Simulated assay, not measured.
Amino acid sequence: MIAVISDVHFPSNAERQKIMETGLKKLTGIRALFICGDFTDNRNDTKPEEEMKLPEYIKKLPYPVFFIDGNHEDYDVLKRLPKISDSENELLFQKSGCSLTAEDTMKASDGIYYLKRGSVCKIDGFSMLLIGGSTTGPGYKKNHPDIWQKDEDLSKEDEKRVLKSLQENNYTFDLILTHTVPECMVKAWFPDKDLSVTNKILEHVWHSISYQHWLFGHFHDDEDYPERMHCLYNDVMLLEALKDGGIRAERRKL
């Protein structure tokens, strides 16, 4: 069984960090934790020589943690993260059964890994496509020039990596993890939110693939939407692969 959360926003909001810490300690039988972006809240806040600022309660978890980027991470820090070594990738597989494409896996700390856009992960009976990036269109850039980062949206290179992963996996995954959602979903469910190229790319992905569950964050909502799409904020989603090929998905408060 794996667990999925989103928008930890460390170190912002001490009360939220306490809820996260207490809730995660209660989870049992977990093979790995996945975070759908905004793991940290350090936009343009880290000095060049500093490492990524991570919560100690996450570092102490007895299973590996994987995260994609949202719009609150410091992208300069993400770019400096080292690639996971082949030997560490093999050790990770032995411990958790998690098969990763090494060139798309960066090490933030022991047991904590950043999965670049278009990463594919196979773990505990699941095949997963992970796509970070956020809804950061013209309005957002104009209204928040102090915190907007040019790397928040998916680039052409990111799009090529995503398309390559789709092709190599026959456009079929059990789980899709993103930070934001396809353009048509933003328009229908979050009409006050800005749109960007990331939403357009995700819409292309959505029309192209077969999946069982799609999990996302960004909108600070806890809701199950049509098309088996699930927004996470204060909830954790527990997912277990079943013998018949289905997935048991349980939403639970942290």
Rank of each mutant, 00 (worst) to 15 (best):
M1T: 08
A3Y: 02
S6Y: 07
D7L: 01
D7V: 06
V8Q: 03
H9M: 04
H9D: 10
P11W: 11
R16Y: 11
I19K: 15
M20T: 03
T22V: 14
L24Q: 08
K26W: 02
L27C: 08
T28H: 14
L33I: 01
F34G: 00
I35K: 04
F39T: 04
D41F: 10
D41N: 14
T46N: 12
K47D: 13
E51Y: 08
E51C: 10
L54W: 04
L61G: 04
Y63D: 06
Y63E: 08
P64W: 05
V65K: 02
F66H: 00
I68R: 00
I68S: 01
N71Y: 03
H72L: 05
E73T: 07
Y75C: 09
V77Q: 12
V77G: 04
V77S: 12
L78R: 04
K79T: 09
P82Q: 09
K83E: 11
D86W: 06
S87W: 05
E90A: 13
L91C: 08
L92E: 03
Q94D: 13
K95E: 14
G97T: 11
C98Q: 00
L100G: 01
A102P: 09
K107G: 03
D110Y: 11
Y113I: 08
Y114E: 09
K116I: 06
K116G: 13
R117F: 04
V120Q: 10
K122N: 12
I123H: 00
M128Q: 11
L129A: 01
L129R: 00
L130C: 00
G132N: 03
G133H: 06
S134F: 05
T135D: 09
T136E: 09
G137E: 06
Y140V: 15
P145A: 03
D146E: 15
W148N: 05
K150A: 13
D153R: 12
K156A: 14
K160C: 10
K160M: 15
R161C: 07
K164C: 12
S165Y: 10
Q167A: 14
E168S: 08
D174I: 03
L175C: 06
I176R: 00
L177T: 00
L177W: 00
L177N: 01
V181C: 13
P182E: 02
E183L: 09
C184P: 06
V186F: 02
W189A: 11
F190W: 11
P191W: 05
K193Q: 14
S196V: 13
V197T: 13
V197D: 06
L202V: 00
L202D: 01
E203I: 08
S208P: 10
I209P: 12
S210K: 15
Y211K: 02
Q212T: 05
Q212I: 00
H213C: 07
L215P: 01
G217V: 08
G217C: 09
F219R: 08
H220P: 12
D222K: 11
E223Q: 14
Y225T: 05
P226E: 14
E227G: 02
C231G: 15
C231D: 10
D235T: 10
L239I: 07
E240L: 09
A241G: 02
L242C: 14
L242D: 11
K243D: 15
K243V: 13
G245I: 06
R251P: 03
R251G: 02
R252N: 13
K253V: 13
